[in-house]
Design a protein around this nucleic acid. Structure first.
Lengths: 338, 338
DNA sequence: AACGTTACTGGTAACGTTTCCAAAATCATC
DNA sequence: GATGATTTTGGAAACGTTACCAGTAACGTT
């Protein structure tokens, strides 16, 4: 017999299937004696319940899905790592789903949900600009991490989110450049339009310039095809060929690092010829030359908040919430005063 | 009714449960007419079978677990990404398990296996030096990725592996430095002893020196507490304070990048003052300054090989295999001739 | 037209749990 | 020690599939 069943345990501990089940699920209505009895046999034979059977009768699984757009992003890896820990320590299990830039996260999620009877979903890095009707496909709680849907059509009480205030933080980053005397400040953004992280950060950039009385020059803005470093590198190349600037705001650390490389390849020095600031705070920024000045998102806190919110939704206490985190300025050596 | 069952589909398509099941599982013994009928209703109502019920009667799940030590490692992320794709396209699902450096991968795997009735396991980046008795806990096929167990106690036909020949590739890397005229070549390794990737690569280093008639100097070797950049940085600091060298062989790209940063912080130039070579070929090496010369592991190929082997084991055709991949030299600007 | 093949179909018993319900045991009260 | 209340127990019906088995329909063959 490869796998023991609850029946075997019942027989071995001289009790019934029901009692074993009760013990295993920590029901109060079972005598101390029986409980001890059962526990002992369970330990002894290293019995582990069959999850499929359990999920079948429970009518759902114990799985929380994490749907991530761009798993290669170091910032996301960091978050995933913490999320996984938290999910397991809450007694759930996690399944990870990577989607490409052309995939539809809602489709993926809906499919997986139907197939596995998910408990909940955490979206990581998606755009998630869906209509309420679309979202109705998802009948389970979900939280969007790193995406705040600030202007989206979706009603705020239909889902939760954990994010930084992208626009405000971008504003802070650009203001820092302005305070250091920069006036020609370029922006390296990502192509996706509409209500995306890129757009929000871009708006922050524009607003900071406006508030400082610096006229907006579209020449100074270039969009990469994706968040990938490769695309950022070539976007930066276009930008650098087109115009001159003393500082660059990149919407992500990885993109800033690609930009840094382009500058190096063109024999331009950071920060002497061009200052650099970005948002994310990935570990790598401490190791590039020069170290990157960046607004660090509290990745671990964000991950824990996601799981905490989702779990409390699942347990029935707690409503949908939208949590905004603050970034912390981590000064590297990539910004100089002019 | 939230979820349709196979019974509903049977009723709706005017046939029986058995027939629907047969259609869904692509059994040949069903008429074209019935098949079309069923397919249509399935499409129309977007029916998705309940996996728990299926797994219950099948007596196993459709899940392949990936147990990874150090998910933050960019090389692993890349592999995971491809593995996930491959697993899904083969019709399985994936669950990802991150373990810390102190955790026991076998324990984790055994636990998860019992709980979920896994189909198979892929170990990523572990040491996996277990005795045959330990491994007997795992009753399902598994493949170790990036770890070859070259000298381990485990019988070779009990598991599969996909890896590079760590010793040989390290040998190649160090020989390249030797060919460029370097004689004082330091090594930045990782602390884990015994039969680890670090050790294998370290042996390759020693052998290359020996073959070139360069005497081995233990002063030139420093071990980091882990593969983390932080630990690599401080190990490199110790090394650099202790002795002088014209070139460094690091056992991983990430460690090399940390070393590069330390050299920069100490006002030493790469490659003028110290050449650098490593193994892995992560994308980032193209973006550091200067670009790192590295032996690139074919991450995608390795990932696909893992899944292919595992799937063929699961299908019953195919035996346990040990695949060695070749690296490809990707020349950056971090090595100079002396 | 009777027969044997073959192609297809539907009924039903698993699979290993949880949960409901009723029965049994225990306890408290008079 | 009889009664009712309470705690603890076990039996059995779900949950939604698959797979076996028996049966029916369709088709050639003689």
């Amino acid at each position: 017999m490869t796998h023991l069943t609850i029946k075997d345990i019942a027989k071995l501990s001289g009790t019934s299937v029901s009692t074993v089940s009760r013990v295993l699920n920590n029901h109060p209505d079972v005598s101390e004696k029986a409980r001890a009895q059962v526990m002992e046999t369970v330990e002894q034979y290293r019995y582990v319940p069959n999850n499929s059977a359990r999920n079948l009768v429970i009518r759902e699984s114990d799985t929380i899905a994490v749907v991530v757009r761009g798993i290669a992003n170091p910032f996301f890896t960091r978050i995933i790592k913490t999320i996984e820990r938290a999910i397991y320590s809450e007694g759930y299990s996690m399944s990870l789903h990577q989607i490409g830039s052309s995939d539809d996260e809602l489709m993926t999620a809906a499919m997986v949900e139907r197939e596995k009877r998910l408990k909940g979903i955490i979206f990581l890095g998606g755009r998630f600009n869906y209509s309420p009707e679309d979202v109705a496909m998802l009948r389970i709680p979900f939280v969007c991490c790193t995406y705040s849907n600030t202007f989206g059509a979706l009603e705020r009480d239909r889902f939760s989110s954990v994010a930084i205030d992208d626009k405000r933080e971008a504003y802070r980053a650009v203001r820092l450049l302005l305070e250091r005397g920069h006036r020609r400040i370029a922006a390296l953004i990502e192509a996706e339009d509409g209500d995306s992280i890129s757009q929000l950060r871009y708006e922050g950039y524009q607003e900071a310039l406006a508030d400082a009385g610096v006229p907006f020059d579209p020449e100074l803005v270039e969009a990469a095809g994706s968040f990938e470093m490769e695309d950022a590198y070539s976007a930066m190349a276009r930008l650098q060929e087109r115009t001159r600037f003393t500082a660059l705001f990149a919407i992500s650390d990885a993109m800033a690092m690609a930009a840094m490389k382009l500058l190096f390849d063109r024999r331009l020095r950071v920060p002497e010829d061009c200052s650099l600031i970005a948002i994310d705070g990935i570990e790598l920024t401490n190791y590039c030359v020069p170290t990157l000045t960046t607004l660090e998102q509290p990745a671990d806190e964000m991950a824990l908040a996601c799981v905490k919110i989702l779990v409390s939704l699942l347990r029935g206490d707690g409503k949908n919430r939208h949590v905004f985190m603050e970034t912390r300025l981590r000064e590297g050596a990539s910004v100089r005063s002019v």
